[in-house]
Amino acid sequence: MSAMTTLAATDPSLVMSVPEQILFWTVGAIVVLAAFALLFSKRAVVTACAIVLVMVGLCFLYFALQAPFLGVAQLVVYTGAIMMLFVFVLMLVGVDISDSFIETIRGQRPLGVLFGLGLLACLGGAVLKSTMPPVQGIPQDPEVSNPSALAEILFSNYAFTLEITGCLLIIAALGAVIMTHRVRLTKRITQGEIAAIRLRDGMRLTPPPAPGNYARHNAADIPALDAGGDVIEDSVPTVLRMRGQVHRLKGVAQDLLPDEVPATRRPDAVPPAGDIPAVAETPQQLAAEAEAQGRKPEAGEGEVKS
C-alpha cells in the first residue's frame, strides 16, 4: 500500500479527478450493494433486477473509463438483451419461484465464504502489489470517435477473430434452437378429430355457455344459470373447477336463488355447496375438453403454484 501511495505521490497522472472520484464512489457503492443481491436475495426476479442495476452502473463506469462505445454496448447488450433474456426465462420457469437457503452440501457455505475471501485477498493483493504504469489515457482525437477507432482495429487486425465470433454466435443460436426443440410424441389433434370425438361420445357439440350469464356477476368463476334458474357447471372453465375455485351462487346473489329446494330437476348439476365438483375425467378427455373450450391445456400450473 505504501508503495502505491508513494507512486501516486510521484506521478500525478495516476490520480483520478474529483468528479470521477465522486462518480466512482457513488456508482461503485450502488454496484456492489446490488451485486450482493446475488448472494442474499431469495427471489430470482429480485436478483435479476439487481443485476440490471449493476449492468447500468457498469455502463456509467465504462464511460468514465473513456470507453463510450462499450458503455453503450453494455447498456444495449447486457441490460437490453441478456438480462431481458434472463427475465424471460424466469417467467418461463415461474416468476415467483424462490430459492431455499437451506444448504444441502455439508460445509459448502463456509467453504464458499472462505474461498471468496481467499480469492479477494489474492486478487486484491495482486492489484496492490503490482506496479502500475502512469495512466496514459485513451488518445482523444476529435476527428476519430471512439467507435471509429475501435472499428479500425476490429476490421483490420481482428477481422478473422470477428468472423470466428460470428460463427460462434450462429452456432450458439442454432444450438439453443436444437436444445429447446421438442419432438412431438403424440399426434396433433385437429379440430375435426375433436368434433368427431365429441359426436362419438355424446359430448356437447356446441361451445359451452359463457359463465356469469343471468347472474349479477359476469366473472369467469361464477357459473351460468339455465332458464329454470339452475346452475350450469359446464360454464365454468375446467381449471377453475378442478381447483375448487368455483363460486357458489349463494355467495354472490342470494336473491336469485329459488325459494324451493334447489336442483330438483337436475340433481347432478349442483354439487353440495362449497364442494369440488366430482371430476372423473382422464387427462385426454380433459385436454380435449379444454381445447373444445378454446383454451390451451395448461400443463404444470399446479406445480408452479405450489
Partner: peptide
C-alpha cells in the same frame, strides 16, 4: 485458481 494466483504472487 486461488492456489495458482497465490503461488504466482
Amino acid at each position: 485458481v486461488i492456489l495458482l494466483v497465490a503461488i504466482v504472487l
